[in-house]
């Protein structure tokens, strides 16, 4: 028993070394994903079929395939093409880390853009009409009315996506990335103690999720102040 405790303690310390990598994967790919999501969203709501259609196809492809398969395609598949090996993207795609970021952000962009679109569609059209009637231009309406309100509406669903991304980062361990899961798998291979190690790993992810939930809860509260009749602080 004490042996197990010592093993768990020891391996948790080792796996926490990968925390930085896990958070890097999460934050970089979510950040890039958000930018991509906004671009896809603008294409979707542009009202122009030649922008809407490619965005729709893109979203369909990335939502319709498992993220692990996407990671494998990018990591194992792309290097087979010479023009990719010759391209400026090769330094990124040569390594598991770069491939993982690319796969995760392309995926997150597809999901997030649909979340944002839901938020945009839920904004009361009357508000945009009121802004039009005041003489506000389309970009002004987008920036000052649509964006803040749609952001608030999208936030609960986005926090879900963000947490889901945290867990998807563990897939990077399949292509040599030494994130927390990657380190955990290495330890398991050395110690043959999968039960202790993976259970500890699960608990670390749960603790991270707890903090992410709380942070989003706090942001939600701040952005929703104006929806409550009383208690404006």
């Amino acid at each position: 028993m004490t042996e197990s405790v010592a093993l768990i303690f020891d391996s948790v310390l080792k796996m926490l070394v990968g925390l930085g990598m896990t958070l890097q994967l999460l934050i970089i790919s979510s950040g890039l994903g958000l930018i991509l999501a906004v671009i896809l969203l603008l294409m979707r709501i542009s009202g122009k079929w030649y922008l809407n259609l490619p965005a729709q196809i893109y979203i369909y492809i990335f939502r319709g395939t498992p993220i692990l398969v996407q990671i494998f395609i990018i990591y194992y598949g792309l290097p087979q093409f010479e023009f990719i090996r010759d391209s400026i993207f090769w330094p990124i795609l040569r390594e598991g880390y770069g491939c993982a970021i690319v796969a995760l952000f392309l995926n997150s962009g597809a999901y997030t853009s649909e979340i944002l679109r839901g938020g945009v569609l839920a904004v009361d059209q009357g508000l945009l009409e009121a802004a039009s009637a005041l003489g506000m231009s389309k970009p002004q309406r987008f920036l000052y009315i649509l964006t803040p309100i749609a952001t608030r509406i999208s936030l609960p669903a986005y926090s879900n996506e963000f947490i889901s991304m945290l867990k998807s980062t563990s897939l990077a361990s399949t292509i040599t990335v030494a994130d927390m899961t990657g380190i955990g798998r290495t330890i398991v291979a050395q110690t043959f103690a999968p039960y202790e190690i993976f259970l500890s790993l699960a608990i670390i992810y749960m603790i991270l999720t707890f903090f992410i939930q709380r942070s989003f809860g706090w942001i939600e509260n701040r952005l929703s102040r104006y929806t409550k009749k009383l208690g404006i602080s």
């Binding site: 009409e129 802004a131 009637a133 009315i145 608030r152």
Partner: peptide, 17 residues
């Protein structure tokens, strides 16, 4: 539009301001 003011049935005040 800026010369033509409009008031709606459902007020349409910007809720976040």
């Amino acid at each position: 539009r800026r010369e033509v003011g409009m008031v709606f049935q459902s007020f349409n005040l910007f809720p976040h301001m």
